[in-house]
Design a binder for these strands. Sequence first.
DNA 1: CATAAGCTTCAACCACGGTTTAAGGTCTGG
DNA 2: CCAGACCTTAAACCGTGGTTGAAGCTTATG
Lengths: 131, 131
Amino acid sequence: MKIGEIANAAGVTTSRIRFYEKRGIIAPALRGPNGYRDYPAELVALLRFIEQAQGLGFTLSEIASVEIRNDPQPISGEQAIHMLMAKRDAVDALIEEATQRRHMIDALIEDLRTSGGDRADGAGGARGPRT
Amino acid sequence: MKIGEIANAAGVTTSRIRFYEKRGIIAPALRGPNGYRDYPAELVALLRFIEQAQGLGFTLSEIASVEIRNDPQPISGEQAIHMLMAKRDAVDALIEEATQRRHMIDALIEDLRTSGGDRADGAGGARGPRT
DNA sequence: CATAAGCTTCAACCACGGTTTAAGGTCTGG
DNA sequence: CCAGACCTTAAACCGTGGTTGAAGCTTATG
């Protein structure tokens, strides 16, 4: 798929895709004989994932660390497994952090509900009288 | 409390507090006869709330619009609750995505282990030639 | 009383995450 | 054949969320 098709399918701009590629957040595309990028259709899902993660406050570096790209040069099975396991750990870390964030959100909601709009700073605590 | 005390208690920099004040994210401080800012101790909790919310991907504008100050009119926690619930849904979606990714990584690792490290590519989504 | 620490304002600078613009090359349809 | 759509790179620009620095005033301490 050409960059415009991918961009259209994923709902992002072409400039954004090029930017991601330049930053190593997505794998460099294969190139046709005309120099045009040729992306796999799977990239659409990855781009959506990136948007999701960004919406949750993850930086592009964080996202890049949990994402796996097609390595240009095949590496030994040992290395590949090692790398994949590192990626898996990073994904686990992301899931854990996201789960914690979820809990934090729940707590904030509960706090707001019980305090009846009294104040919004309930979480994180420390509401002593002023010093 | 003077700005340095507040900053110390909340674990933020003084410049950040001045920045927030300038942007209207926090209320302007009272001033002593010397011109020094004098903040209520409650600001500490608010600053922590701001950090939390930022970590969840909220922009300062979003926070400012939802944040509840010492205003006479406590603006509805309704809004905040809706915002947080939407964010919670987004977090859930991300967790699901990440979990699927984790499974894909596991499958790849297994693949490499059983097939002797033939190929090191694949990811982002399905393996397979580009479409 | 001197000196450091802490406060003031204002302006310049920075990283991040892109978008926009310029100057092309390529491909498609009438 | 050629206009317009789509692709290329490189570099300039932008909003957000701050940090850093200069220059000066105040306050606390030996």
